[in-house]
């Protein structure tokens, strides 16, 4: 399974899913803001912006799902329930996995929230 990344031990993996949320948020906001300020620049219709947001959303959700799966693996595939409070490396890893999984869930929902305006708005009204 060379496709699946190896388990890495660092604090930073905790932030993967929220970082994806932030990137997705910025892409949507900046993309739409530039389009509404300079529609002539790209010469596309607003539907293209909505399609772009849809594509960014699919990519973001897939990345978050991947991060969630990796977190689930770090959590020992869900075999050990919290509180993960033993003074061992194993419990520390399980804690990281579980917390990362929770954050992936929140980020997944937040990305969907961000994308929803594109379902309803069809032009750059002010």
């Amino acid at each position: 399974m060379w496709l699946v990344p190896k388990q890495i031990e660092t604090l930073w993996t905790l932030f993967t899913a929220p970082v994806v949320w932030a990137a997705h948020f910025l892409v949507c906001y900046i993309g739409a803001a530039i389009y509404c300020a300079k529609p002539e620049l790209v010469g596309l219709s607003f539907s293209a912006v909505r399609a772009g947001i849809a594509a960014a959303t699919v990519i973001a959700l897939s990345l978050i799902a991947l991060s969630a799966w990796l977190a689930w693996r770090q959590w020992g595939l869900g075999t050990d329930d919290p509180p993960h409070d033993d003074p061992t490396r194993r419990d520390r890893t399980l804690f990281q996995g579980f917390a990362t999984l929770l954050l992936s869930g929140l980020s997944f929902i937040a990305v969907i929230f961000t994308a929803m305006p594109a379902l309803f708005l069809t032009e750059c009204i002010r």
């Binding site: 948020f25 949507c28 906001y29 739409a32 803001a33 509404c36 912006v49 929140l106 929902i109 937040a110 929230f113 961000t114 929803m116 305006p117 594109a118 309803f120 708005l121 750059c124 009204i125 002010r126």
Partner: peptide
């Protein structure tokens, strides 16, 4: 301030999402 509605909507969505955590 008269920003495009789609911009407002993104921030409105995030403002609702922060109620979850």
């Amino acid at each position: 301030t008269g920003l495009p509605q789609i911009s407002l909507a993104f921030f409105s969505a995030a403002s609702e999402a922060v109620a979850i955590p």
